[in-house]
Computed example of a mutant assay.
Amino acid sequence: MSVLTFTFQVLTICGCWPPNSWTSRYKRIMYDIYTVCIVLLINTFMLSQLMDIILNVDNTDDFAENFYVTLAMIVSCCKMFSLLRNRSNIAMLIDILMKKPCKPVEFDEIKIRQKFDRLIQMNTLYYATLVELTCAFAVATSVFKDYRKDRLAFRAWLPFNYSSPILFRIAYVHQSISLTVGSVLHIACDSLICGLLMHICSQIEIFKCHLRKIVNKSHFLRECVIQHIYISKFAFMVNKKFRFIITVQFVVSMLVVCFNLHQLTQMDINAKYIQIMLYMCCMLTQISFYCWYGNEVKLKSQQLASNVFEMEWLTLDHNVKRSLLIIMTRSMIPIEFTSAYVISMNLESFVGLLKTSYSAYNILQQMKD
């Protein structure tokens, strides 16, 4: 049974995961070259924007023009680095899901896994559609607005004079492709992390199925104890391996929401206004996925004690009751994902992020007045 198939296809497109069928040495070398090209694309675009802010920007209007895109590209570079660094760890996590005790065996367990797989694929597809529509809108409006006037799609510092038509076209295409690749990287990393969170929810649902079967099949007890330990270890590994990128995402999301709120109040409704609104929707969708499914993992892990009580546990023997009591005691401390060891990934954090961004926006408005 495959796991996160669509997500790994997106990872392959953005140069972070070689196709499984490419086993020959030459194909692996070709894919490594492709990965290097992707890394160069997004890093050169990010550096050109960052250097423009450092060297050329001297007023708030110029700073505001591309700041949110610069932040998005910085996060894209961080996500690329995190994905490439954690290739072996990602393979290890997927391997855990594909083997016992996490691998579903019976029909009802397979149905649960398939239900979550469909939900993961649907979420990834909807999120990808939103992000790529935003990216396509930004590129299309730039073609009609900037390209005809021989201006780049985004402000940038370049180490050459791009006034000649050929160099201008190269720089313009470079920006457009880099923006698209950066957006695909966001989709790949976000869908991978959220997909792993949803698989933890799937494992908890399968674990509940095992609990209900203990009454008639006592041999399931040992599998339940082992599976409960595996779920906790798996969640800890996911949180540990992706804590850096989750932290970066939280910080940047807060900055972007605050900054874009300020920008929207200063603009008339035009193409730029719509572009920033779409970008805001992407950013809020992005961080809400992290918080929503982090919250789902916490709630489902907390409900395990209640699930044990719902069983006919009074009819079980002493050893079974003792093992169930150990599981209940462990479930009193829920599985919780954190950002920077401090901020929990739940709905309260999402609301707190919005409130903090709005408070910062009010402070900016007061300083301006």
Rank of each mutant, 00 (worst) to 15 (best):
M328T: 13
R155I: 03
L47I: 14
N123T: 03
K355I: 12
V184S: 12
A140I: 09
D32T: 13
E205G: 01
P165W: 09
V75G: 01
I326M: 14
V75M: 06
Q266C: 12
H262F: 15
C209R: 08
A305I: 10
K217G: 00
A360I: 11
Q266N: 15
I112G: 01
C224V: 14
C224G: 12
V10S: 05
T129I: 09
M30Y: 13
H174Y: 10
P104Q: 03
I214D: 06
M332W: 07
V75N: 08
F236M: 09
D32P: 01
Y341D: 15
V36F: 13
M46T: 15
C258H: 11
K233I: 00
S344D: 08
T60R: 09
T124R: 02
K321A: 02
F6I: 07
D52M: 04
E109Q: 13
F242R: 08
K300R: 12
N161D: 15
V248P: 10
H199Y: 13
N20E: 15
K27N: 05
M98T: 09
R25H: 10
Q175G: 03
P159I: 03
M328E: 06
Y147A: 13
H210Q: 12
Y290R: 00
I287C: 02
I193A: 01
M92H: 14
K233P: 00
R113D: 10
L304N: 05
I327D: 05
R212D: 10
P159F: 02
M92F: 14
N86C: 04
C37I: 12
P101D: 02
T70K: 01
S323V: 00
D108E: 14
R330W: 12
R155T: 12
I343A: 13
K272G: 11
L211V: 04
N346Q: 04
R169C: 11
F168Q: 06
I200E: 07
L41F: 14
A188T: 07
A136E: 01
S21H: 15
P104K: 02
P104N: 02
